[in-house]
Design a protein around this nucleic acid. Structure first.
Lengths: 214, 214
DNA sequence: TAGATTGTTAATCGATTAACAATC
DNA sequence: TAGATTGTTAATCGATTAACAATC
């Protein structure tokens, strides 16, 4: 019973729809059209309809989609009602920031523990989450059945940490280190590629300057 | 003299090439083939050649690309040699993490100041960067000709901060808030969309469970 | 010369957008 | 009924990949 797989592009838009719908909470009118949604988010209306068709029970011609139902369907599909456990390796500034951020709960993610090799950090806790020695990783992952790992160590150590994670049975890695990771086939790496984002930003700036000159 | 615009996908791959090339620093042999690069980064070799053709003086048949030249061309193209100034609004955990992160210098970005509306933060400094009241934003942006703004406030305040930034002449916004921003035409928003990344990660997990069941 | 590798032209693939029929 | 909106089928567009000629 394989449900039709949703494209990566669609998958990435779904949280945006959900967030926007939730922001309309105050409004009484219970329906919204794909056209409205598309306009608000600078998307094409047909694209929105196609995306929603894949995860919801559909809208009604002339009326649109029931907002509450849509929110429910999106949360259901994205798994925001079920919580996945994650561990974080690297308790530096970025690691601490992620540990402290309480918004992940809303997305169905709970960071259960952090790991670092810095002796002075081990045993301390950040925002109620304890920081362990890296040796403890296998045991904790197995005990708590953790499948998601977050890497926030400096780039030169990222691959090594990644290998340890996959050895522990982690099969989804969120990589904040500016490094390319090599992993077994069944493991997914999602790069939070700040260098790539910055490239887009600064290039926009420099091309703007050039075009202003003309 | 409009240089051929590079696609967004290409632009995002360039920092990856650069990073990998730099990591080969130890090796003596001065050349690398597109095939090698592609294999190491799990990309197609023709794609790598096409990407590199757009920003470098090219390689030599049978030999490959000169690594040092390639690194130079990539840094040149990505503007890592010139520094852009940026301001950050929102000096919470994430904002502080970014202020503290010293790696941006390498990418040609310097965060010159931070802003917050929390009175207890104003006047303090993080990693040598001062935190100002939001009122000071226009003056500072104009004086230092700041064109890049980083938003690390909670989602409900993101649009308001964004509007202030564009009013100050900022035309490239790096948005870490989980909110869709509406901006004038000439302004670019780059969303660091953690919710989207998480959606991909957790979906991989749940689809894996389903396929394992078969 | 032979062979590896580049760079280009053509084919494929997938996502977005346009056109339109179905429906409340 | 008329009109707005959905949902689907076809057309377009752009990026990736394959095929191949050029070259050191």
């Amino acid at each position: 019973m394989a449900t039709k797989p949703v494209s990566l592009q669609t998958l990435q838009r779904l949280p945006t729809y959900l967030h926007y719908l939730k922001s309309l909470h105050k409004e009484d009118y219970p329906y919204i059209s794909a056209t409205n949604l598309a306009d608000a988010l600078n998307l094409n209306d047909v694209q929105v309809r196609k995306d929603l068709a894949q995860i919801s029970s559909g809208g009604k011609p002339k009326i649109g989609y029931n907002k509450a139902n849509l929110i429910f369907d999106l949360e259901q599909y994205l798994g925001y009602n079920k919580t996945d456990s994650a561990v974080i390796v690297g308790a530096g500034n970025l690691g601490k920031a992620l540990l402290t951020y309480s918004g992940f709960a809303e997305y169905g993610l709970e960071i259960v523990a952090a790991f670092d090799k810095d002796e002075s950090l081990i045993g301390t806790n950040v925002h109620g989450k304890q920081i362990f020695s890296l040796d403890k990783l296998p045991n904790l992952c197995e005990r708590l059945n953790v499948k998601i790992g977050i890497i926030t160590v400096p780039a030169p150590h990222a691959q090594e940490v990644c290998d340890k994670m996959t050895a522990c049975g982690i099969c989804a890695i969120w990589n904040f280190a500016p490094a390319h990771l090599t992993v077994p086939n069944n493991v997914l790496v999602q790069n939070e590629n700040m260098a790539a984002s910055l490239a887009i930003l600064t290039k926009h700036l420099s091309s703007k300057i050039n075009s202003d000159e003309e």
